[in-house]
Amino acid sequence: MKQGGWNREIPLYLMILPGVLLVFVYSYVPMAGIVMAFQHFVPARGWFGSNWVGLDNFRYVAAMPDIVQVVWNTIFISAMKLIAGIVVPITIALLLNEVGKNGFKRGIQTLVYLPHFMSWVILGGVLIDILSPTQGLVNLMIKQFGGHPIYFLGDNSWFPFTLVVTNEWKEFGFSTIVYLAALTNINPSLYEAATIDGANRWKQMLHVTLPGMTPIIVLMVTLSLGQILNAGFDQVFNLYSPVVYESGDIIDTLIYRIGLVDAQYSVSTAVGLFKSVISFLFISVSYYLAYRFANYRIF
């Protein structure tokens, strides 16, 4: 009997093997490179030949003039993205769920899903045109209604919000699908019972749909909290400019400049390690909270 169970599980282990290998090779092995954060790393001398400098790289980063601004920008932008990334897709998923016609529903689903496949390199050029204060579509509409044109990509008070909105426009279709999948998992008999008890559509949504979705919402929030210091390199890199460095420069663009442009590997590793530690703390806390308040556990 036991033997049989093991035999049945072997294919499952085989199926998970490539994934485990991938994570091992690309996520665990490179962790050895963390030592670079505590060295003055010279590529030719390698990890064993480079001099140890203790916490010098971290002190160097802490003394960088714009580090506080950069960390603040990162948290501010990604926190807003996180909130938008939960509220918008859930709302859309709930609305789509109420749509009766299957064809219409799938049509919308596909349409909003499409921007996800466009790269920020292309969208960067497109958005500069669409959001242009003189010629752009958006500002022409604002002017039509008597407003003053807004320089979305060149005004420090607007830039972070522009990032959040454009990112959400690009990605909400994709996350909506996850929530729609969660909706299909709710037992239809619950709705039947609710209808018999006299619940209207609104009450059904509050008392059947939302509670049914809670586990997946908690899972998504927990996982995205770990991303709190990832404000979206590709997007920011393609949209920012010297005018909005003040509100748009984030940790990842800083790492890019130090590591890939200046080739200061140790310093950029130090920043990266700092980022990972913070992310780890966030994910631990959110996991605990999810367990505490939603009784949800991944492991």
């Binding site: 003039p65 714009d66 010297p242 005018v243 460095y245 003040e246 200061q264």
Partner: peptide
Amino acid sequence: GSKQSSLDKMTLENLT
């Protein structure tokens, strides 16, 4: 080697 990119960024930001 260690400061140029920060200084260049500052220069562009201020002049712009």
